[in-house]
Simulated scan of single mutants.
Amino acid sequence: MNFDQITSKENSLFKELRLLQATGSKGQKARISSGCALLEGIHLVQTWVGDPALKTIFTSEAGLKNAEIAEAVYSQIEICPDTKVYQLDSALWDLLSDLVNAPHIAGLLELPKSSLVAAQSLANLDGDVVILDRIQDAGNVGTILRTAAAAGFTQIIALSGCAHLWSSKVLRAGMGAHRLLDLYEGWTNQQVLSAVTAPLMAATAEAEQDLFTLKQELLNPVAWVMGSEGQGVSDDLLAQAKGVSIPIDPRVESLNVSTAAAICLFETMRVRRT
C-alpha cells in the first residue's frame, strides 16, 4: 500500500505537528486551536487503534518494517478506512520526537468535546471527580490521570494553571489512561463550585481530619482536590472543602502530589470494597 510522503521539515503538516508538541502556552494554544493532540510512540497509538478520533497516522519506511507498528497502522485502516497515513522521511523523526531511538509512529488525535467545551455549558457534574488545582508538572499530572483511571475515577477537572492534559509529556505519563477518562480543562474555582455536586475533599497537610478515619464520607460520591506542588489547594476551594490529611512521619515535610492522589483515591476504593 502506498502512502503519501512527507520529506521536508517545511511541509505545512509537519510544522503543525511540531507546534502540537510545543511546551507551555504555545503548545496548548495550538492543540486547542486545531482540536488535536499528537500521540507519540507505539503504546499510545495502539491505545486508540479502532477509534475514528485517531484521524491520521505518521510512520516511515523503516517503521512499517516493524511488525508491531505495521499491525497498528493496518488495523486502524481496516477498522477506520478514512484514517490518513503519511510516511515521513526517516531524517524527520529526529526533529519530531525528543525520545531516544523513538519508534517511527505517531498519531493525530481529535480531542474529545469535553476538553474543548466551556464549563459554562455544563449544568451539573455528578458523581466522583478528581480536581487538579494548578498542578504544573506534566509528569505529576499524567501520573494522576493514570492512577485515577486505575481507581475508577473517570471525571477529571484541570483548573486554569495546570499542565495541559493533552501535552506530549502528560500523554506519555498517562500511558493511555486518557482514553478511559472524561477530561475537562481550563475551569475556574467558581465553575467547579457551581457544577460539581459531590462534596469537596481537599488533600492538605494542615488538616486535622485523618484520611484513614474517613468511612461514611467515602461511600458516597466525592470530589478529591489535589493542590499545586508549591502552594497546595487554593484558599477559595479550601474554604468550601473538607480538609483531609495523610498521616506521615513528622520528619518528612510532605508527599509528592501524585503519591498523595494515589493514596486518597485507592483509600476511597478500599473503603467502598469493605
Rank of each mutant, 00 (worst) to 15 (best):
M269Y: 13
M226N: 08
D182C: 01
V192K: 08
A67C: 08
V73N: 05
V222Q: 14
A198P: 10
L64C: 05
R273P: 09
E16V: 13
C80M: 01
K242A: 05
Q190W: 03
A173K: 01
H43G: 01
A173D: 00
R272M: 14
A102F: 06
A106I: 02
I57E: 01
S245Q: 15
T59Q: 03
R134E: 12
L200D: 10
Y86N: 01
D4W: 12
Q136A: 06
P250R: 14
G27S: 08
E217T: 07
A106N: 06
S168H: 12
T154D: 12
G176H: 00
R31G: 02
K113E: 15
L180E: 14
I248D: 13
G24Y: 11
L125T: 04
Q190N: 07
N189C: 10
S167P: 03
W48S: 03
N256C: 04
K215P: 00
V233W: 03
Q28D: 14
S97Q: 10
A207I: 08
T154S: 13
L95E: 11
W224S: 11
A22E: 15
G63N: 05
D98F: 13
N101M: 09
I69E: 09
S25G: 02
Q240S: 12
I248F: 11
T204A: 12
G27K: 10
V100T: 15
Q76Y: 06
A37V: 05
I32Q: 02
C36M: 06
L19R: 14
Q190I: 01
L193A: 00
T213A: 09
A239M: 09
R146L: 04
Y184K: 09
V73E: 11
D51T: 09
Y86V: 04
E68D: 14
Q190G: 01
R146K: 11
L237S: 11
V73T: 10
D235F: 01
R134P: 00
L171H: 06
A150I: 12
E61Y: 00
A241T: 04
N124Y: 10
L181E: 06
L108P: 10
E208P: 02
F14K: 04
Y74K: 12
L111E: 08
T213E: 12
A37S: 10
A261E: 07
G161Y: 04
P81S: 07
F58A: 02
P103C: 01
L211Q: 02
S254R: 12
N256G: 09
V244F: 10
A262R: 12
T23Q: 15
L218W: 11
V225W: 07
L64A: 05
L218K: 08
R179V: 00
M1C: 01
V170P: 04
L96A: 03
L218S: 13
E185I: 04
D128N: 15
T154Y: 13
L180F: 07
V233P: 07
S34A: 10
A22M: 10
A151E: 07
A260S: 13
K15H: 05
N189M: 06
Q120E: 15
N140F: 03
T188R: 10
S60Y: 10
T143F: 08
A202P: 06
V192E: 02
V73L: 01
Q28V: 00
I144P: 05
K65P: 02
G152K: 14
P199C: 06
A239G: 02
Q191D: 08
I135W: 00
R18L: 15
V244I: 11
L159E: 08
S90D: 11
T188A: 08
G227N: 03
